[in-house]
Amino acid sequence: MDEYVLIMRHENATGQVSPEQMQAWMQQTMDWLGGIAAQGKLLETGNGLSFDDARVVGHGGVVTNGPFGEIKETIGGYVIVKAESVEEAVEFAKGSPVLQGPGNTLEVRKVAKHDFK
């Protein structure tokens, strides 16, 4: 069993949603994660990443506000799951409500384990 990080990418995210939208989205997210957890495959519920106070630090220490503006895609959050194969991890990713937004994607990445012993 390997560990996979599911990284949620939002296109054209502004961070501005109504409280009702936010609540509905939270519930869908929790139900999605609950389904993975019910299979004993959820390692970390991870964290949502706030759109406020975001900075991009570039080459030579150039700091810009937000990733928004220059980049179309922003990372909205991540979760970590356990899966037998990348295919299983992809199945988990398919259930994410993030994918309801056109242009949004989930990136599935296996955690590279380094043996430091």
């Binding site: 519930q27 929790m30 609950g34 957890a37 019910a38 004993g40 959820l42």
Partner: peptide, 18 residues
């Protein structure tokens, strides 16, 4: 109840909670 069971499973998996 659904929300609470989701939360319980986030903390610790058990077949009965699932």
């Amino acid at each position: 109840v659904l929300k609470l069971y989701n939360h319980l499973l986030f903390i610790e998996y058990s077949p009965i909670a699932a």
